[in-house]
Design a binder for these strands. Structure first.
Lengths: 381, 381
DNA sequence: CTCATTCGTTCAATGCTTGAACTTAGTGCG
DNA sequence: CGCACTAAGTTCAAGCATTGAACGAATGAG
């Protein structure tokens, strides 16, 4: 690594700083200089190739106040685009996202994926991606691919609800079909990322908790999704809350999942689908409300344990839990207040995710735009 | 930040790399160049001020093999020294540590600290430090101070066993008394650090678990001690294993601490002190063995939960747990095997700490030597 | 003594940010 | 209309740690 290489790293680091500022909001060279702490000279220098490369555009001067009018820079409306894709138990989804954080297109196709072989799943995802990107000439930065399973070194090592996928190398398969670079990650991690990038919902470290068949937590530490040594981090569903409790498919006993999983809630409420449960809750069905409240208690105990270990101040409930938030909140918050050690010092914040059913695909696309910003050399490839 | 500043950062980074290599083991300039990936030219350049400043010494040439003999560099035997200090419920301890990782002096003074006002505690610690460092002319890099409590922004925000200390600013007080820079941290974090620096016991991420009155876990992620947003991370003692279990002083129910705390083990075994329990175990007392085994079960459940959240592969049992290791191991390992999700993929390793009762002070001193190596500019101050 | 071998030193070349000076492009006022 | 004023954006020389190649130093083998 020569000194020249080091200086190039410095340049790339500054480029990243500038792009991060632009993700936050557009701004003139002078404005960006003020926001990043760099000088105007450096900003002229750094933005020149971004403008030439079609990553940024210079807007016409805005005529306000005295002095030479500034010409704001923003991400080029025909600039590069990231693709997010999600393979899940009951649906496929695809979304495209610009570097400015604006969603361009989305598709969500309900379909039972449990018995479909990996090759066919990939064909269908690739088809959806073509549909969504077909009409546009914009350069594609890559695909983020979300799956309900544990990913380690690009391979799926665990996927209790989509066992057909275990051991397959989905990223390579989809890469061949689309000609794009594909990044594979767990849906819980990506849902958390969607709340962090491109706009930070909580403003600080948080845990994002979702329920589908299992319960997954995406943990954000120091502004980064924490994945653990082998991708198993944040397995909130298998936190034990009653050590001699109900036997779990994982071999343990008393896992949170056995008390607060969506399947458990639906069964206790005597419902088949989340929609039906929601309608029952809205209609004031006491059995449904009680089922959700009990799940909230168990979930709150698990979350309290998680907070005592990670010391994060904020919990975001997403997925089905966001739908049930109004009926979950009280029980969860009560267990948190009673059990989290740091609770006295500063409050433990509980939020509902505003992102809805597109949180995971959005995070998957965000994985790609984030990488492009953090490694700006990719924008010039 | 001018380019010149950036280049200075590069130099400091390289200096750090070289010092890290030297902590590992001594070596000639050529050897260090090979180990760090830098060039011989850079090594001559970087080591020159370290030799001039008395941080390193050049040994006489070693005459082995062909070619010009190499002159190994090592930390100067009269070079700077770090002080570790520990304030605990039943003892005070002090240790001095060289940059080479060698312990120079230690003192452990049993004493009940529970009613002693902070000022007197500081006087006694300062006295011990003077005793231990008095005879030497070596420069003191600073003091690492360990306390059984939660530290946030240099202040003690929680110390259930030494309530007199809450709210006091110990670092300032000790700094005034010794004229040294004092760094305050939690004993669980420092015990973990002692297993990571200057020699890495586990070789990868791990959790270090100790029991005194409470149960504390020091979590090492990516080679760094993870402290959380406000210093409360790793509160394993208050992980819930039976949500309707025994009421805990923290306000929760069923905390691990209530089943696996040292006080609980002693009570169940009908003993007063750890020594007595150990002798009973060695003598084959079945009541003692059963008390330890039961604690091991509870501890194992808590550790399994911790591993499912952090995804660390290794657990190190320290403090009293290290003493009881032979009688704890089986129960802990069994719960871990049955409950940790990643357990099937790669084994979960359980180790006993070899550091004994000086683990915490050693970590406290290590905090200072580590900082000196990571911020080499401090060595020239 | 000479050659081979390895250790350690010397030295010119390299390139990105900076801050000051400068140019550009507007507004405001007489 | 013209001149002072203001702010945006551009130009340019200066500054420094690493590098790689060439060189000097120190020893063993023959």
């Amino acid at each position: 690594m020569t000194t020249v290489d080091h200086l190039r790293q410095v340049r790339l680091g500054n480029l990243r700083t500038v792009l991060l500022a632009l993700v936050d909001r557009p701004g003139s060279r002078a404005d960006l200089a003020a926001r990043t702490g760099l000088t105007k000279a450096t900003l002229s220098n750094l933005t020149e190739p971004l403008l030439a490369g079609g990553i940024l555009v210079e807007e016409p001067a805005t005529l306000v106040g005295m002095g030479r009018p500034s010409k704001p820079l923003r991400f080029h409306p025909a600039g590069p685009v990231a693709v997010g894709a999600e393979i899940n138990v009951s649906h496929l989804a695809v979304e495209t996202l610009g570097l400015d954080g604006e969603t361009l297109e989305r598709r969500l196709v309900p379909a039972d994926m449990r018995r479909i072989p990996a090759d066919e799943v990939l064909d269908r995802i690739a088809g959806l991606i073509r549909e969504v990107t077909g009409g546009s000439e914009r350069r594609l930065l890559g695909v983020g691919l979300a799956i309900p399973g544990v990913v380690h070194d690009g391979a799926i090592v665990r996927a209790p609800n989509l066992p057909e996928l275990v051991g397959t190398r989905l990223a390579e398969g989809l890469g061949e079909r689309t000609g794009l670079d594909v990044q594979l990650d767990n849906e819980a991690n990506l849902a958390a990322l969607a709340h962090l990038w491109p706009r930070h919902l909580a403003g600080e470290d948080f845990v994002h908790v979702t329920a589908d068949v299992g319960i997954g937590a995406g943990v954000v530490l120091n502004g980064e999704v924490y994945r653990g040594v082998s991708g198993f981090a944040g397995e909130l569903g298998h936190v034990v809350i009653e050590r001699n409790g109900i036997r779990c498919t994982c071999g343990s006993r008393g896992c949170v999942e056995r008390y607060a999983g969506l399947d458990v809630i639906l069964r206790e409420a005597g419902r088949r689908r989340l929609d039906s449960l929601r309608r029952a809750l809205e209609a004031g069905d006491p059995k449904a409300a009680e089922a959700v409240r009990k799940a909230g208690e168990a979930l709150g105990v698990g979350i309290a344990t998680l907070m005592n270990l990670f010391d994060v101040p904020t919990v975001v409930l997403g997925g089905s839990y966001a739908v049930l938030y109004d009926h979950l909140r009280e029980a969860v918050q009560s267990e948190m207040d009673g059990r989290v050690l740091a609770g006295g010092e500063r409050h433990t914040r509980l939020l509902a995710s505003p992102l809805g059913e597109f949180a995971v695909v959005r995070g998957a696309a965000g994985l790609i735009t984030r990488r492009a910003v953090q490694q700006p050399e990719r924008l010039f490839a």
